[in-house]
Amino acid sequence: MKLAVLLFAFAFAAPTLAGEAAPNADNPEVEARINKLGEDLRCLVCQNESLAGSRADLAEDLRREMRKQMKAGKNDAEVIEYLTDRYGDFVLYRPPFKPVTYLLWLGPVIFLAIGGTIWYVTLKRRHKMQDQIQPDSEALKKAAALLEQ
């Protein structure tokens, strides 16, 4: 009997002794989805780490819940909703586009528009400028002289 147990144990142990390593996740497809979603989510307790990268306890728990939801057939949007229902928009690293974040998302466009206007106005004025009138050419020479002396 003892021998049988031993043999049984060996039969199981042998392949694990030098085998192909098992993926950490039992369902790599779901895991890939979690990692992808997790990049855009905040690990709430670590401050500025993503849910995908964090090894914090709560992050592990949340990934476990996400896994459950996904295995139950929920799509990505529903999984995100599960989290925002509980933790609010704070959990999202990509803030949703809504009235209070209009300025955040449109800001870069506005900056570009302002910059573009400055560029255009400056160039228009420079283009019109008569080349002969160089109020600074005197100073330029002086400075050059100063540096070369």
């Binding site: 709430l44 307790v45 709560l58 728990d61 949340l62 819940e65 509980r86 933790y87 609010g88």
Partner: peptide
């Protein structure tokens, strides 16, 4: 024990 209800309440710590 597994912290699920805590998560349902949005507990972080």
């Amino acid at each position: 024990l597994d912290g699920r209800v805590g998560i349902d309440f949005g507990v972080t710590g």
